[in-house]
């Protein structure tokens, strides 16, 4: 039987693979910014150690493990042990960074982070991969409610970085800050965006990245990248958009955000998270506390278990894509 006839290649489909990039084609990126930033921080602080729960390769912790094998501790697929052990290490004076996926950090091992690290206010730094909708793998791995879960934990600092610049600058500040922290990790080839805005990350601070007369975007995480692109594109519609980036979700920089919100402009919050309990509700609570009586339009994931699928498909479906953001804004302005 002849086997010389080549099987025609199947058309390449968009998939729901666990590991996917949300970088736009041709976008400037940096490889494994968290892993390299941790190595750099560890060069200056010998107390820094790294732990993971069988997800070193998928949280960029492997970069640290290769650089400092004696300072890296593999805990196995055991997230409760991961957080308890990180707390035990912090009690001996070390500064642990412990990585897993955000779903396991928030849903599975909450009690251990809460009581072992947060109650004694230990310097335990949790690094959560696949926050929000950054995988098309389905609800088992999509941590769409991680901030909602974690915001109620006293003492915990929550950071939702936009890009490689945020991550590189946040890591040493997380190590230096007292108390536990949670970093919503962006891994692999991470877009580099904020270098064009004269920006520096300051723990606990929001930053106005650009001004605009018609609309104010208040955004965190990768949605700041989308917000900046949407702001550029909206200029073609004669809509002038300001962007305020709030990488620290808790403690929240209400002063900076309220100063921007308290105008006649349309206010839109943008987050890679369910509309329940994340950035939108954080901003809304501050607006109500200040008595501003201001309407806010949320761009956020719906209060649903999300579909499996390719990330671009899902970001479009659930309203996180630049095109959907533009449509939302134009609809609100009835342009």
């Amino acid at each position: 039987m002849s086997t010389t006839a080549a099987t025609p290649a199947k058309p390449r489909l968009k998939t729901s693979a666990m590991i996917a990039s949300f970088a736009d084609p041709g976008q400037k990126t940096a490889p494994a910014p968290f892993g390299h930033a941790l190595v750099k921080a560890a060069q200056e602080n010998e107390k820094i150690v790294g732990l993971t729960a069988d997800l070193g390769k998928y949280t960029d912790m492997h970069i640290f493990a290769q650089a400092y094998p004696e300072r890296f501790f593999q805990m196995g697929m055991a997230e409760q042990l991961l957080f308890g052990a990180a707390a035990g290490m912090a009690q001996t004076g070390l500064v642990p960074f412990a990585s897993t996926y955000s779903v396991f950090a928030a849903r599975r091992a909450y009690d251990f982070l809460c009581l072992d690290a947060a109650e004694p206010n230990l310097n335990v730094n949790i690094v959560g991969g696949l926050p929000g909708l950054t995988t098309g793998y389905g609800p088992s791995h999509q941590a769409t409610e991680d901030m909602a879960i974690f915001r109620g934990m006293p003492n915990l600092t929550i950071v939702d970085p936009c890009d490689s610049v945020d991550i590189e600058q946040a890591v040493p500040q997380l190590a230096a800050s007292e108390g536990p922290t949670y970093l919503r990790l962006l891994r692999g080839n991470v877009p580099t965006v904020l270098d064009e805005y004269g920006y520096t990350f300051e723990l606990g601070k929001a930053k106005v990245l650009r001004g605009g007369a018609d609309v104010v975007f208040v955004s965190s995480g990768l949605m700041t990248m989308r917000a900046l692109q949407a702001a550029k594109d909206l200029a073609a519609h004669n809509v002038d958009v300001a962007v305020v980036h709030t990488p620290t979700i808790k403690p929240f920089d209400a002063e900076t955000v309220l100063a921007e919100v308290n105008t006649d402009r349309l206010v839109v919050t943008l987050e890679n998270h369910t509309v329940i309990g994340g950035l939108f509700e954080t901003v809304a609570a501050e607006v109500v506390k200040a008595g501003l009586g201001k309407r806010i339009v949320p761009v956020a994931l719906p209060d649903e278990f999300l579909h499996a699928g390719a990330l671009p498909t899902l970001h479009e479906r659930y309203g996180l894509s630049v095109d959907r953001i533009i449509a939302t804004v134009l609809g609100e302005l009835e342009v």
């Binding site: 035990g88 001996t92 070390l94």
Partner: peptide, 11 residues
């Protein structure tokens, strides 16, 4: 015991 593992490792 989870904390104890970390304490023992750290020490």
């Amino acid at each position: 015991l989870t904390i104890a593992v970390g304490t023992a490792l750290g020490l």
